Amino acid sequence: MKSGKFIVVEGLEGAGKSSVIAQINTALKDAQKDVVNTREPGGTPMAEAIRACVKQPWDETVTTETELMLMYAARSQLIENVIKPAIEQGQWVVGDRHDLSSIAYQGGGRGVDRTLLDTIRGITLQGFKPDLTIYLDVEPAVGLARARGRGELDRIELSGLDFFERARSSYLAEADKDNSIRVVDAMQDMDAVHQCVVSIINQFVQQ
Protein backbone atom coordinates (compact mmCIF):
# COMPACT_ATOMS: atom_id res chain seq x y z
CA MET A 1 0.00 0.00 0.00
CA LYS A 2 1.26 3.48 -0.88
CA SER A 3 2.15 5.50 2.21
CA GLY A 4 0.24 8.65 3.06
CA LYS A 5 1.47 12.17 3.78
CA PHE A 6 1.58 14.48 6.78
CA ILE A 7 0.44 18.07 6.24
CA VAL A 8 0.51 20.60 9.09
CA VAL A 9 -1.16 23.99 9.46
CA GLU A 10 0.64 26.45 11.73
CA GLY A 11 0.07 30.02 12.86
CA LEU A 12 -0.41 32.35 15.77
CA GLU A 13 -3.70 32.64 17.61
CA GLY A 14 -6.36 34.08 15.30
CA ALA A 15 -4.55 33.16 12.09
CA GLY A 16 -7.54 31.20 10.78
CA LYS A 17 -6.22 27.65 11.09
CA SER A 18 -9.60 25.99 11.61
CA SER A 19 -11.19 27.33 8.44
CA VAL A 20 -8.04 26.59 6.44
CA ILE A 21 -7.97 22.99 7.69
CA ALA A 22 -11.57 22.58 6.55
CA GLN A 23 -10.54 23.75 3.07
CA ILE A 24 -7.60 21.35 3.02
CA ASN A 25 -9.82 18.45 4.05
CA THR A 26 -12.19 19.20 1.17
CA ALA A 27 -9.36 19.54 -1.36
CA LEU A 28 -7.80 16.24 -0.30
CA LYS A 29 -11.11 14.40 -0.32
CA ASP A 30 -11.77 15.80 -3.80
CA ALA A 31 -8.42 14.26 -4.76
CA GLN A 32 -9.64 10.89 -3.41
CA LYS A 33 -7.41 10.94 -0.33
CA ASP A 34 -8.38 9.31 2.95
CA VAL A 35 -7.98 12.11 5.51
CA VAL A 36 -7.22 11.94 9.25
CA ASN A 37 -7.24 15.11 11.36
CA THR A 38 -5.09 15.70 14.45
CA ARG A 39 -4.45 18.59 16.80
CA GLU A 40 -1.60 19.47 19.13
CA PRO A 41 -1.30 19.22 21.96
CA GLY A 42 -3.87 16.43 21.96
CA GLY A 43 -5.15 13.78 19.61
CA THR A 44 -5.03 10.72 21.90
CA PRO A 45 -6.68 10.21 25.31
CA MET A 46 -3.41 10.79 27.16
CA ALA A 47 -2.39 13.70 24.93
CA GLU A 48 -5.79 15.36 25.44
CA ALA A 49 -5.30 15.12 29.19
CA ILE A 50 -1.92 16.82 28.75
CA ARG A 51 -3.59 19.51 26.61
CA ALA A 52 -6.00 20.32 29.43
CA CYS A 53 -3.09 20.45 31.85
CA VAL A 54 -1.09 22.81 29.62
CA LYS A 55 -3.89 25.25 28.85
CA GLN A 56 -5.63 25.71 32.18
CA PRO A 57 -4.52 28.39 34.67
CA TRP A 58 -2.69 27.21 37.78
CA ASP A 59 -2.22 28.76 41.22
CA GLU A 60 1.51 28.25 40.82
CA THR A 61 4.20 29.14 38.33
CA VAL A 62 4.22 26.84 35.31
CA THR A 63 7.90 26.69 34.45
CA THR A 64 9.05 26.97 30.87
CA GLU A 65 10.69 23.56 31.17
CA THR A 66 7.45 21.97 32.39
CA GLU A 67 5.48 23.44 29.49
CA LEU A 68 8.11 22.32 27.00
CA MET A 69 8.26 18.73 28.22
CA LEU A 70 4.47 18.43 28.40
CA MET A 71 4.21 19.55 24.77
CA TYR A 72 6.69 16.94 23.62
CA ALA A 73 5.14 14.21 25.79
CA ALA A 74 1.79 14.83 24.09
CA ARG A 75 3.49 14.98 20.68
CA SER A 76 5.22 11.64 21.24
CA GLN A 77 1.90 9.97 22.06
CA LEU A 78 0.26 11.42 18.96
CA ILE A 79 3.07 10.54 16.55
CA GLU A 80 3.40 6.94 17.64
CA ASN A 81 -0.28 6.15 18.23
CA VAL A 82 -1.99 8.09 15.44
CA ILE A 83 0.18 9.85 12.86
CA LYS A 84 2.68 7.14 11.91
CA PRO A 85 0.09 4.32 11.80
CA ALA A 86 -2.22 6.44 9.62
CA ILE A 87 0.56 7.30 7.17
CA GLU A 88 1.62 3.65 6.98
CA GLN A 89 -1.97 2.77 6.04
CA GLY A 90 -1.92 5.28 3.18
CA GLN A 91 -3.94 7.99 4.91
CA TRP A 92 -3.19 11.70 4.64
CA VAL A 93 -2.87 13.29 8.08
CA VAL A 94 -3.76 16.98 8.44
CA GLY A 95 -2.41 18.38 11.68
CA ASP A 96 -3.50 21.48 13.56
CA ARG A 97 0.01 22.37 14.84
CA HIS A 98 3.09 20.22 15.26
CA ASP A 99 6.77 20.62 16.15
CA LEU A 100 7.10 24.07 14.56
CA SER A 101 4.72 25.41 17.22
CA SER A 102 7.18 24.44 19.95
CA ILE A 103 10.08 26.02 18.09
CA ALA A 104 8.04 29.23 17.84
CA TYR A 105 6.21 29.27 21.17
CA GLN A 106 8.58 27.59 23.61
CA GLY A 107 11.75 28.47 21.70
CA GLY A 108 11.02 31.96 20.39
CA GLY A 109 8.25 33.01 22.74
CA ARG A 110 9.53 31.53 26.02
CA GLY A 111 13.20 31.76 25.13
CA VAL A 112 14.11 28.09 25.62
CA ASP A 113 17.74 27.50 24.68
CA ARG A 114 17.86 26.04 21.16
CA THR A 115 20.37 23.34 22.12
CA LEU A 116 18.03 22.09 24.86
CA LEU A 117 15.05 22.34 22.54
CA ASP A 118 16.81 20.40 19.79
CA THR A 119 17.86 17.70 22.27
CA ILE A 120 14.25 17.10 23.30
CA ARG A 121 13.12 17.31 19.68
CA GLY A 122 15.67 14.70 18.70
CA ILE A 123 14.56 12.29 21.41
CA THR A 124 10.89 12.73 20.55
CA LEU A 125 10.88 13.05 16.76
CA GLN A 126 13.88 10.94 15.74
CA GLY A 127 13.94 12.67 12.38
CA PHE A 128 10.19 12.53 11.77
CA LYS A 129 8.77 15.69 10.19
CA PRO A 130 5.80 16.84 8.10
CA ASP A 131 5.87 16.51 4.32
CA LEU A 132 4.34 19.98 4.03
CA THR A 133 3.70 22.78 6.51
CA ILE A 134 1.48 25.76 5.76
CA TYR A 135 2.25 28.70 8.02
CA LEU A 136 -0.51 31.32 8.19
CA ASP A 137 1.30 34.58 8.90
CA VAL A 138 -0.67 37.19 10.83
CA GLU A 139 0.41 40.24 12.79
CA PRO A 140 0.16 39.28 16.48
CA ALA A 141 -2.02 42.24 17.49
CA VAL A 142 -4.53 41.37 14.77
CA GLY A 143 -4.47 37.67 15.58
CA LEU A 144 -5.00 38.25 19.29
CA ALA A 145 -7.91 40.60 18.57
CA ARG A 146 -9.51 37.87 16.46
CA ALA A 147 -8.87 35.31 19.22
CA ARG A 148 -10.51 37.55 21.83
CA GLY A 149 -13.53 37.77 19.57
CA ARG A 150 -13.94 33.99 19.94
CA GLY A 151 -14.22 34.20 23.72
CA GLU A 152 -12.06 33.88 26.82
CA LEU A 153 -8.34 33.37 26.20
CA ASP A 154 -6.45 30.41 27.66
CA ARG A 155 -3.19 30.51 29.63
CA ILE A 156 -0.93 30.51 26.56
CA GLU A 157 -3.06 33.02 24.66
CA LEU A 158 -2.63 35.38 27.63
CA SER A 159 1.17 35.36 27.27
CA GLY A 160 1.28 38.91 25.90
CA LEU A 161 2.02 40.70 22.64
CA ASP A 162 5.81 40.54 23.00
CA PHE A 163 5.62 36.76 23.38
CA PHE A 164 3.70 36.45 20.11
CA GLU A 165 6.00 38.88 18.31
CA ARG A 166 8.93 36.63 19.22
CA ALA A 167 6.98 33.53 18.19
CA ARG A 168 6.18 35.08 14.81
CA SER A 169 9.84 35.91 14.23
CA SER A 170 10.74 32.30 14.96
CA TYR A 171 8.11 31.00 12.55
CA LEU A 172 9.40 33.21 9.75
CA ALA A 173 13.03 32.35 10.47
CA GLU A 174 12.27 28.62 10.26
CA ALA A 175 10.31 29.11 7.03
CA ASP A 176 13.29 30.91 5.49
CA LYS A 177 15.49 27.83 5.89
CA ASP A 178 13.02 25.00 5.20
CA ASN A 179 11.46 24.75 1.76
CA SER A 180 8.79 22.35 3.05
CA ILE A 181 7.24 25.31 4.92
CA ARG A 182 4.98 27.52 2.79
CA VAL A 183 4.08 30.97 4.13
CA VAL A 184 0.59 32.31 3.42
CA ASP A 185 -0.36 35.92 4.19
CA ALA A 186 -3.23 35.52 6.67
CA MET A 187 -3.83 39.28 6.76
CA GLN A 188 -5.68 38.90 3.46
CA ASP A 189 -9.41 38.38 3.14
CA MET A 190 -10.10 34.78 4.20
CA ASP A 191 -11.43 33.86 0.77
CA ALA A 192 -8.05 34.83 -0.68
CA VAL A 193 -6.27 32.85 2.04
CA HIS A 194 -8.37 29.80 1.25
CA GLN A 195 -7.71 30.08 -2.48
CA CYS A 196 -3.97 30.30 -1.87
CA VAL A 197 -3.96 27.29 0.46
CA VAL A 198 -6.07 25.13 -1.85
CA SER A 199 -3.71 25.98 -4.72
CA ILE A 200 -0.73 24.86 -2.61
CA ILE A 201 -2.50 21.62 -1.68
CA ASN A 202 -3.53 20.84 -5.26
CA GLN A 203 0.04 21.34 -6.44
CA PHE A 204 1.38 19.18 -3.63
CA VAL A 205 -1.04 16.33 -4.40
CA GLN A 206 0.09 16.32 -8.03
CA GLN A 207 3.79 15.99 -7.20
Score class of each variant (00 low, 15 high):
55 K>P: 02
86 A>I: 01
175 A>V: 05
127 G>W: 06
154 D>Y: 01
131 D>P: 01
181 I>E: 03
108 G>W: 06
60 E>H: 13
202 N>E: 15
198 V>W: 02
138 V>C: 04
201 I>L: 08
3 S>R: 07
104 A>Q: 01
88 E>N: 12
14 G>H: 02
183 V>F: 07
15 A>F: 04
168 R>E: 09
116 L>V: 07
119 T>A: 14
89 Q>A: 14
11 G>P: 02
63 T>W: 08
58 W>N: 09
17 K>H: 11
73 A>W: 08
43 G>H: 06
162 D>C: 06
77 Q>H: 14
121 R>P: 00
169 S>Y: 15
78 L>C: 13
71 M>T: 02
64 T>V: 12
13 E>A: 04
183 V>C: 00
192 A>M: 14
192 A>D: 11
207 Q>V: 06
150 R>N: 06
68 L>W: 09
13 E>S: 05
153 L>T: 04
69 M>I: 12
167 A>D: 02
33 K>P: 01
73 A>T: 11
16 G>L: 08
20 V>G: 02
127 G>H: 10
66 T>V: 09
23 Q>T: 11
151 G>L: 09
117 L>T: 02
112 V>F: 03
168 R>V: 06
104 A>W: 00
41 P>Q: 07
28 L>C: 10
178 D>W: 07
171 Y>F: 14
75 R>F: 05
206 Q>C: 13
15 A>L: 10
38 T>E: 04
5 K>M: 05
145 A>Q: 13
46 M>D: 09
168 R>S: 05
193 V>S: 03
178 D>M: 08
24 I>A: 04
95 G>A: 15
128 F>Y: 15
20 V>K: 06
110 R>G: 00
86 A>H: 03
133 T>F: 00
31 A>I: 11
34 D>K: 14
1 M>R: 09
159 S>K: 09
29 K>E: 15
78 L>A: 08
168 R>A: 04
117 L>R: 05
185 D>R: 07
196 C>A: 13
136 L>Q: 03
55 K>R: 11
63 T>P: 05
5 K>D: 11
105 Y>T: 06
66 T>K: 11
178 D>N: 15
23 Q>L: 15
70 L>A: 06
157 E>I: 00
50 I>V: 12
2 K>I: 09
14 G>T: 02
183 V>A: 06
174 E>I: 07
84 K>F: 01
69 M>F: 12
134 I>L: 11
136 L>I: 06
46 M>E: 10
19 S>L: 11
42 G>F: 01
25 N>C: 14
58 W>Y: 10
88 E>Y: 09
134 I>Q: 00
8 V>R: 01
94 V>N: 04
27 A>C: 08
37 N>H: 10
118 D>W: 02
194 H>A: 09
125 L>V: 01
195 Q>R: 11
61 T>L: 12
80 E>R: 15
76 S>M: 04
122 G>R: 08
117 L>E: 01
177 K>N: 14
116 L>T: 07
70 L>K: 03
162 D>K: 11
53 C>M: 13
179 N>Q: 10
4 G>H: 02
187 M>P: 03
138 V>Q: 01
123 I>M: 15
41 P>I: 01
87 I>C: 06
117 L>P: 02
67 E>V: 10
109 G>D: 02
57 P>E: 13
33 K>W: 04
52 A>G: 15
149 G>T: 10
97 R>K: 15
27 A>Q: 03
187 M>W: 07
197 V>E: 01
